[in-house]
Each structure stands twice: as structure tokens, then as C-alpha cells.
């Protein structure tokens, strides 16, 4: 109890500090800390899958993305809107307080214990061959949501690239990174990737029976690629590279193809033939991991920059 109370207090304090921070770098650093604390909270709630995802994507990749954005904004003056007047501030405060009170009251009035589909998942999980109920929900019961979210990632890459400034199209994405000579970055860029890749493969594979899976594994793989890129050890391929685009599209395309085959063979989109569910799901997971890893890294790297 004591631990939970402290954790909750810390989350609130860091959240407040994030909002109150004036500098973009300070706010981003606090936001990353906030994400890590949230991950702990999920661990305390027994939701290991969510904790892993929160740490990898919520704190890690989003943090890197925000740091990159802050670095890009630094040379430019940021125009600040005029602060609202005193009456407006009071009205906004009252409105927020009202919403908070309504949310708090609603949470206290929810049924306890909370209604859940967990028993139904447990009853049906046998048909999927999976041991991890979260994986069964993501890849079988609600597979179409996962499929569409993976398509959203492709769309996100297209959207990010569409923001390329004039004259930058076709070149490598992101800002060119100088090669790090010595120092911690150069050392980490040599040491971490082999370990990271191993960890990612492990997390992907155990995802079928234990917390883990493609999103977490892909986030680690993306981080390893970005580490090498930030140290200047590898250049990002140009956005016109066919293989790069193929890798991003491969996972969702395969998932949709499997879904349509399920419709033709079994009569329903994303229905898996009995007995074959597990191998099909694992193949989709592996290909999706590659696509998601590249897409996540490309999102952090950003659109192609202006060419000289």
C-alpha cells in the first residue's frame, strides 16, 4: 500500500512538473521520467504487457521523438500566444476542476470488481495455441484492431514524410548525424546493438506465452538502429529506397493477405484454420516486428531535410 501511495504521488508530482516546466528539454526529460513511473504503476497493477509497452514506446521512443523535435526547434524563436487574462484563467480553472470532479465521482461509482472479458478470454484461448492472453486478444479475438493499427503506422510514415520541406524529396530522412569519435555514444553504438537485438528476439518469441511481443521487440530494435544512426555509424537510407518502403509495408500487407485467406478458406476475415493458428500468428508477428521497427525508427528520424 505504502509503495502504491508513493508511486501515485510521484506520478502526480512529475506530471505537474512536466506541465509547469518552461523549457522544452526540461519538459521532455520529465516526460520520460513520467513514462517510466507509469510503467512501474502498470507493473504494480499486474499488467506486464502494458508496462513493457509504456516503457519502450511511451517513455523511450516518444521521449526520443520529443527530444529530436526540441532540438529542431531550438534555433528558431517560438512565438508564444498571449497569456489568457485573469477572468479567462479563472474560467478555465473552474472548468477543469468541474471535469476532474465529474471524472473522480464517475470512477468511484464504477462497478467493483470491474466487469471484464478476462474469463471469456481464458475460456477461448485454447483455440489460438497461445499462452499469453494479451497476445490472444491482439492476434485473434481483436486481431482486426491490431491489423488496422499496423496500417496506421504505415500511414504515419507517409504523413511524416509528406512534411518534407521543398527540395528535400528523395534524399535520406532526418538530419545528417556527424560520426561520433570516441565518447560514450560511440562506445554504446558498438556495444549495445548485439545485446539489444538478442533481447528483442527473445521478447518477440516469448510474447506468445508471456508478456512481450512484436510492439515491444520492435521498439527495442528501432532503438538499436537509431543508436547506430545517432553515432553516425550508419546512414539512414533515402526515402526513395524501394527496399525501405517494402519493409515498412510488408507486415501489414501480409496480415491483410492472411486475413483474406482466412475469409476464402474459413469463411471469415482473419479466421485461422484449426490447428494452424499458432504458426500463422507467429509468422505474422515476426514480419510485423520488422515493419514496425523500421516504421518507428523512421518516425523518430523524421522527414527528409532540406538539401544544400
Amino acid at each position: 500500500m505504502m509503495v502504491d501511495a508513493l508511486l501515485a504521488a510521484a506520478i502526480l508530482a512529475v506530471a505537474l512538473a512536466t506541465v509547469a516546466a518552461r523549457g522544452t528539454f526540461t519538459a521532455t526529460a520529465l516526460f520520460i521520467g513520467y513514462g517510466l513511473l507509469l510503467a512501474f504503476a502498470w507493473v504494480r497493477l499486474g499488467a506486464m504487457d502494458v508496462a513493457l509497452t509504456e516503457a519502450a514506446i511511451g517513455a523511450g521512443l516518444s521521449g526520443a521523438l520529443l527530444l529530436g523535435a526540441a532540438a529542431r526547434m531550438r534555433p528558431h524563436r517560438v512565438a508564444l500566444d498571449r497569456a489568457p487574462g485573469r477572468a479567462m484563467t479563472a474560467a478555465i480553472g473552474l472548468g477543469c476542476a468541474g471535469v476532474t470532479a465529474a471524472l473522480a465521482a464517475a470512477i468511484l461509482l464504477l462497478p467493483d470488481p470491474a466487469l471484464s472479458l478476462a474469463p471469456q478470454v481464458a475460456a477461448q484461448i485454447g483455440t489460438t495455441g497461445l499462452g499469453n492472453p494479451v497476445a490472444a486478444v491482439l492476434m485473434s479475438f481483436r486481431a482486426v484492431d491490431t491489423l488496422l493499427e499496423s496500417a496506421v503506422l504505415v500511414l504515419a510514415v507517409i504523413a511524416a514524410w509528406s512534411l518534407a520541406p521543398k527540395g528535400g524529396w528523395g534524399g535520406p530522412p532526418g538530419l545528417v548525424q556527424p560520426q561520433a569519435q570516441g565518447g560514450p555514444l560511440a562506445l554504446l553504438a558498438r556495444l549495445l546493438p548485439p545485446v539489444g537485438i538478442l533481447v528483442a528476439v527473445h521478447i518477440l518469441w516469448i510474447g506468445k506465452d508471456a508478456p512481450g511481443g512484436k510492439f515491444q521487440a520492435a521498439a527495442i530494435l528501432a532503438a538499436m538502429w537509431m543508436l547506430a544512426w545517432m553515432a553516425g555509424r550508419t546512414a539512414a537510407p533515402p526515402v526513395s529506397a524501394r527496399w525501405l518502403r517494402l519493409v515498412v509495408a510488408a507486415g501489414p500487407a501480409l496480415f491483410i493477405a492472411i486475413g483474406l485467406l482466412g475469409w476464402l478458406a474459413e469463411g471469415a476475415f482473419l479466421a485461422y484454420p484449426p490447428g494452424l493458428a499458432l504458426p500463422i500468428i507467429m509468422v505474422v508477428e515476426i514480419v510485423l516486428t520488422a515493419s514496425i521497427a523500421v516504421a518507428l525508427a523512421l518516425l523518430v528520424i523524421g522527414p527528409p531535410g532540406r538539401r544544400a
Partner: peptide, 27 residues
């Protein structure tokens, strides 16, 4: 599940698969 239920499913998946394939196909 009803007869012809696949039609709305295909109506959703057709543009989605097009969007995914559009990336490697290029403009």
C-alpha cells in the same frame, strides 16, 4: 454472420490494402 456480410468487410479492407501497397509502389 449474415449472407453478403463479407461485402462491408471488403469495402473496408480494399482501400486499406491499397494504402499499404501505395508506399512501395511510389507515386
Amino acid at each position: 454472420m449474415t449472407a453478403w456480410g463479407a461485402l462491408p468487410m471488403l469495402a473496408v479492407m480494399l482501400p486499406v490494402v491499397g494504402m499499404v501497397l501505395a508506399l512501395p509502389l511510389g507515386a
